[in-house]
Amino acid sequence: DLTRHLTDGVIIWQGKIIGHLPSFLYGDWNVWLGLPSADFVSLEYVPFLPNIFLFLCGLYLFQFMSEHEKGQAYLKKLS
């Protein structure tokens, strides 16, 4: 939730705005982070910062499951 609204220029925690990001952070040079300019348009755009935490959770979950017997059995069923 913290990085979900970065493209809107705000940081939100538990539904409340806790900070506004300065406009100089937004531009073509920071698109990959999730800070595009206002006129940025793309059909296939996945910003880095809002999604890195989801990736890390999946990585941790895979590691956890591969270390435990029941998790290994479940992973074998998937493959």
Rank of each mutant, 00 (worst) to 15 (best):
G19A: 15
E44H: 13
G9K: 00
F55H: 09
Y74I: 11
L2H: 02
Q14S: 07
H5L: 10
F40A: 05
L33C: 03
S66F: 12
V46P: 00
D8Y: 03
F24G: 07
P47A: 03
W32T: 05
P22V: 03
D1N: 13
S79V: 04
F55T: 13
V31S: 02
L35D: 01
F24M: 05
N51W: 04
G34P: 00
F53D: 04
D28M: 07
L33N: 01
T7S: 14
D28P: 04
V10M: 15
W29K: 15
Y74N: 10
D28R: 13
F55V: 14
F40V: 05
L61E: 15
L25F: 14
L78P: 01
G58L: 07
G71F: 01
V46Q: 02
Q14D: 11
T3C: 08
Y60F: 15
F48H: 08
L56E: 02
G19K: 14
I17F: 14
K16P: 02
N30E: 12
P47W: 00
I11R: 10
D28G: 14
R4A: 13
S66L: 10
L56Q: 03
V41Y: 11
V46W: 01
I17G: 10
Q63W: 15
I52R: 03
G58K: 05
C57Y: 09
F55I: 13
L25Q: 04
I11G: 04
F48M: 07
Q14P: 05
L75A: 03
M65Q: 08
R4I: 07
L21G: 01
L56W: 02
N30D: 10
Y74S: 07
L75Y: 04
K76M: 04
N51K: 09
G34A: 01
L33R: 00
L35K: 01
P47E: 01
P47T: 01
Y26V: 00
E67G: 12
L49A: 04
W32S: 08
Q14C: 08
F48V: 05
C57E: 14
L59W: 06
L25Y: 12
Y74V: 07
W29L: 13
P22A: 03
G15Y: 09
L43P: 08
E69C: 06
F24Y: 06
E67K: 14
A38R: 09
F24S: 06
D39L: 05
G71W: 00
L61T: 15
